[in-house]
């Protein structure tokens, strides 16, 4: 069920060796070129995981600053986009860890979401459902369903067991399905 990334778009874009070499020498034009290609997928991923534009923009800034500092250590073992995506995911998870409450309130927030049956009838789209999930539940769901991460990878990223991400994902999907059963999804928009 996971969404397959478009080759040539998002984080899957190729980067010319010359651009990378220039970036590794600290060339600002090369950094601008990398932002032009990867700024948007980076922002999209952060927005999906964090649910708020301001947080997502702050995170893109953090990721690109870190990329500028550490690109000299990039050896080309993996495609640049995959390396940058990893930086983004790690930064998102760090951000979630720093947030107060973490996933302690996830169950309560999900229960409240389901309980608002009257409001559910007026749901605009699935994105508004996702945006209202507890932060960690949303992050696990986005990484597993949209980005194709396995439970094993999620366990490593979150520093938890595989059963942790399986449990969070199963509950989140179950509750989301319960919400949309009465009313089909409308067109997706932000």
């Amino acid at each position: 069920m996971s969404a397959t990334p478009d080759p040539g778009a998002g984080f899957a874009q190729d980067v010319e060796a010359m651009v990378l070499a220039r970036a590794q020498r600290g060339d600002m034009q090369a950094f601008a070129s990398l932002y032009e290609r990867f700024g948007r997928p980076c922002f999209n991923l952060a927005l999906r995981m964090l649910g708020q534009r301001q947080h997502a923009e702050d995170l893109v800034q953090e990721v690109f600053l870190k990329m500028m500092d550490t690109i000299r250590s990039y050896r080309g073992d993996a495609p640049f986009g995959a390396w940058l995506k990893r930086l983004t995911v790690n930064a998102c998870i760090d951000h979630l860890r720093r947030q107060r409450g973490g996933d302690e309130g996830a169950e309560a927030q999900l229960a409240q979401l389901v309980g608002e049956s009257g409001e559910a009838a007026h749901m605009v789209d699935a994105w508004s459902l996702l945006a209202r999930l507890p932060p960690r539940s949303r992050a696990v769901l986005v990484l597993h369903e949209f980005e194709g991460y396995t439970h094993s990878e999620l366990a490593e990223l979150f520093g938890q067991s595989e059963s942790y991400s399986k449990s969070i994902l199963a509950r989140a999907l179950g509750r989301l399905n319960a919400l949309v059963t009465a009313r089909p999804l409308k067109q997706v928009s932000l």
Binding site: M1, N44, E57, V188, S189
Partner: peptide, 20 residues
């Protein structure tokens, strides 16, 4: 999860989200 079309949702988000 038949009720939730994640592929469609993902495409919509890719197309719609734009940073400042």
């Amino acid at each position: 999860t038949d009720q939730l079309n994640f592929s469609e949702l993902a495409r919509g988000l890719e197309a719609g989200a734009e940073a400042a």
